[in-house]
């Protein structure tokens, strides 16, 4: 009997809810324990497509009930558990629980001196590009994904080719846990190159760095490029600890509403 030959997974990008090959037609070879894997080398065009999908999906994702978003994140935890990624599963479950609670911690009712009910709530920033330090592994990816999406954002996970195996597993878990297409895209390649592409994309609202994924020069260029669109830069330097509510709050915008309140006879009626 011939020993059974393994069926190789062909790594792909995950964009708009589909597993797709890079438009570049290029791959990056990665040596793994099982042999050589060929990670897609995400291109400028791939990131443009990913951004369009993310932008289109975000408002509906944010409009879903918080409970529902939490359940989808929890479902991701279940899938990750099934793939033996216990630590990442725990992280998905942790953030799943924030979905319908973090608003209560980050919103305020502001006592203004006027006949208005004044409240500050949190709104998603929109589309987040998250660049993940490969040293943080699957946990770093899930942390980025969960932190971004639990706040109602859509996300582009920019993943180093060396993490392609985990990235593929994560994409499969996403694809099987009720995520609406476009909320999460996973793009593999060379981080400095991917970030370079993102620097030319104006429709990204926040750059999220998980761990320390970029060398100083690339990081500086990314920051400078972000100035063109007043893009925000957020760091989660140590994803071994889940993002705190305060950190999650940086992936949101505070929005203040002055809601006119009824006042009998229209005021103090001083004369």
């Amino acid at each position: 009997m011939t020993a059974r030959l393994a069926v190789w997974r062909t790594p792909k990008l995950y964009i708009g809810g589909q597993f797709v090959r890079s438009e570049s037609g290029q791959t990056v070879a990665v040596a793994t324990a099982e042999g050589i894997l060929h990670a897609c080398r995400g291109s400028r065009k791939d990131l443009r497509d990913a951004t369009e999908h993310a932008r289109a999906a975000q408002p509906k994702w944010a409009a879903r009930a918080a409970l529902n978003r939490g359940q989808i994140l929890y479902r991701l935890g279940e899938m990750l558990e099934g793939r033996g990624a216990g630590e990442a599963a725990d992280r998905a479950v942790h953030h799943a629980g924030w979905a319908d609670k973090v608003t209560a911690l980050l919103s305020t009712l502001n006592p203004v001196s006027a006949t208005y009910v004044n409240y500050t709530m949190i709104r998603p920033v929109g589309v987040i590009a998250a660049v993940v330090d490969p040293a943080t592994g699957m946990l770093g990816m899930v942390e980025a994904l969960a932190a971004a999406t639990v706040m109602g954002n859509s996300v582009l996970l920019l993943v180093a080719a060396e993490s392609v195996d985990d990235a593929t597993t994560l994409a499969e878990c996403i694809a099987t846990s009720d995520w609406p297409a476009g909320v999460v895209q996973i793009v593999t390649g060379t981080l400095s190159e991917l970030v370079g592409h993102v620097n030319g994309l104006d429709d990204i609202d926040t750059l999220l760095r998980v761990g320390t994924p970029l060398d100083a020069e690339v990081a500086l260029a990314a920051e400078q490029a972000g100035a063109r669109t007043i893009r925000r830069l957020v760091d989660l330097p140590n994803p071994s600890i889940p993002a705190t509510p305060e950190q999650l709050g940086r992936l949101a915008e505070a929005k203040t509403v002055w809601m006119s309140a009824y006042e009998p006879q229209g005021g103090a009626a001083s004369y």
Partner: peptide, 8 residues
């Protein structure tokens, strides 16, 4: 309308 208690 502006107020010190109201984030802007």
């Amino acid at each position: 309308l502006f107020d010190p208690a109201s984030p802007f």
